[in-house]
Simulated scan of single mutants.
Amino acid sequence: MMYGAKAYAQVGLETGINSASPHGLIVMLYDGAIEAIRKARIYLEMNDIEMKVKSIDKALRIVKDGLTASLDIEAGGALGEQLLALYDYIGKELVLANVQNNPERLDTCMNLLNDLRSAWLEIGSTATLEK
């Protein structure tokens, strides 16, 4: 039964990805990273080290392979460079949180990503209004 639920969720995710705008895909990346960090914090509190490591690894992959890879520094200029530095900082904080079992570092990463997500949503709503 659990397999069916997972398959259904996967289809929903794939449908969302296929129909999302580039702006929406970035929001999905933020959501995924935030959720992975939230889970890592729960696993840390439960002392489930294996699942904590897997969740932090997932968040790191989203930040590095998703958010960082999506940056166009040339087109983004100074803002793109600042985002790159911030993503690098978040990545380092996630590694330290993992090694040190430090929930405060996880909270810092989650708060930064939440702020970026909110700003990205605001940019999207402003762009929509200007059309």
Rank of each mutant, 00 (worst) to 15 (best):
N18R: 14
Q10W: 05
K39N: 07
E35W: 01
P103E: 10
Y3A: 13
L67T: 05
E130Q: 13
R41W: 00
V99I: 15
E74L: 09
G76F: 10
E50I: 11
D31W: 10
I26L: 13
A69R: 15
I123N: 01
A36N: 09
R117K: 15
G16W: 07
I37V: 12
I37T: 03
G32T: 05
L67N: 04
N114F: 00
M2R: 13
E14N: 13
N111C: 00
R105I: 02
Y89E: 12
R41A: 02
L129W: 00
G24M: 07
V63F: 06
R41H: 09
M2A: 12
A119T: 14
S55C: 15
I49M: 11
M51A: 13
E122N: 05
P22R: 10
K52G: 02
L25K: 12
A20R: 08
L79E: 09
E93V: 12
G66T: 11
A33P: 03
S19L: 13
L96K: 15
N101Y: 02
Y89M: 15
L113W: 03
D57R: 15
I37W: 01
K131S: 04
S19Y: 03
E35N: 09
L71G: 05
D88P: 01
L67F: 09
L116T: 04
A59P: 07
H23S: 05
K131W: 00
G124W: 04
T108C: 00
G66N: 11
L84V: 00
A127G: 00
L112T: 14
